[in-house]
Design a protein around this nucleic acid. Structure first.
Lengths: 161, 161
DNA sequence: TCTTGACCTCAAGTGAGGTTGAACTTACAC
DNA sequence: GTGTAAGTTCAACCTCACTTGAGGTCAAGA
């Protein structure tokens, strides 16, 4: 075991690109943890850098911090996570990324066909399917509003401009 | 000119899939407009449906409502916008979508190579480039935090676990 | 006429992911 | 041993895209 040199919050902040306030915020959510000096200052293990990197990356991919927390919870608590452990987690993002790419491609293609055919019936071609809508922009079901395709179709049918 | 049958907010809501509160919100931002009945209720032109569809789609694409407002401001005020007008606006989304897809693909591939080579140096492989990070999740410069690649590299170089 | 449902305004709340400020304490280099 | 940079807590604030609630009005059918 090499000598563990603990890192201050400022060091972790600089090296991870997450502001101290952000790190405290992550800690408040239980995503990372720290020891304290006798004077109550945080000291982080080196592995925290990896953990923070993971959090940032997952966040970038569109996971909520809650979801990331759940993923992190599957890491073994007893020992320092191995490369193996991290690999398992990262690999689990693959389908998510693929799905997200697919959703955006679909949106792009829908848009193309709307533009191509000249109808530009966004109501009919694109906005009709709420499932895609929810998938396209990532986390949460923000766009599942229970709108009615039938109404949209009627509107498109009688539309003037 | 066909008879203009004005739509109530409820009708627009149903047909567009945007809640009345959302439509009022859009109006407060100047994204749509309405006439009023003698009793102060909103009445919408039919073209509002298309406008709302545009807003929703643009929003889905990842534009902020501010940006959408700017786009809408380029529409001619003098006449009802034609299919041509809408096509012009929508076409401009294409690069944005392409960029977004590319960013996520890049992220996915970076991740793959990290996993593949066994280093799993997220700090080095993935988190090192802030520009991509900003692009990946869409609108705004939310992720441009001025972090230092140099620091990240140093951190990766001396990382233990 | 009455009731009901749709509409109005304005202020406040939501949730995600943090940042900022005030008031105070620690750690460390000189 | 002291100055100051960096740390602490806690509450409040921020943006984005809306929704909710309170308190009140309007429109239409029975």
């Amino acid at each position: 075991m090499p000598i563990e040199r603990y890192l201050t919050i400022g060091e972790v902040a600089q090296r991870s690109g997450v502001a101290p306030s952000g790190l405290r915020y992550y800690e408040s959510l239980g995503l990372i943890s720290s020891e304290r000096t006798p004077g109550n200052q945080r000291r982080y293990e080196r592995t925290t850098l990896r953990r923070v990197a993971f959090i940032r990356t997952a966040s970038r991919v569109g996971l909520t911090l809650d979801e990331i927390g759940e993923a992190l919870a599957t890491l073994p608590e007893a020992r320092t996570p191995t490369a193996e452990d991290w690999t398992r987690l990262s690999r689990s993002w693959r389908p998510l990324l693929d799905a997200r790419i697919a959703a955006i491609e679909r949106l792009r293609d829908d848009l193309d066909s709307c533009i191509g055919c000249g109808c530009l019936s966004l109501e009919r071609c694109v906005l009709q399917n709420p499932a895609d809508r929810a998938a396209a922009l990532g986390p949460g079901a923000r766009y599942l509003e229970g709108d009615s395709p039938l109404d949209a179709a009627r509107a498109a049918g009688s539309s003037t401009s």
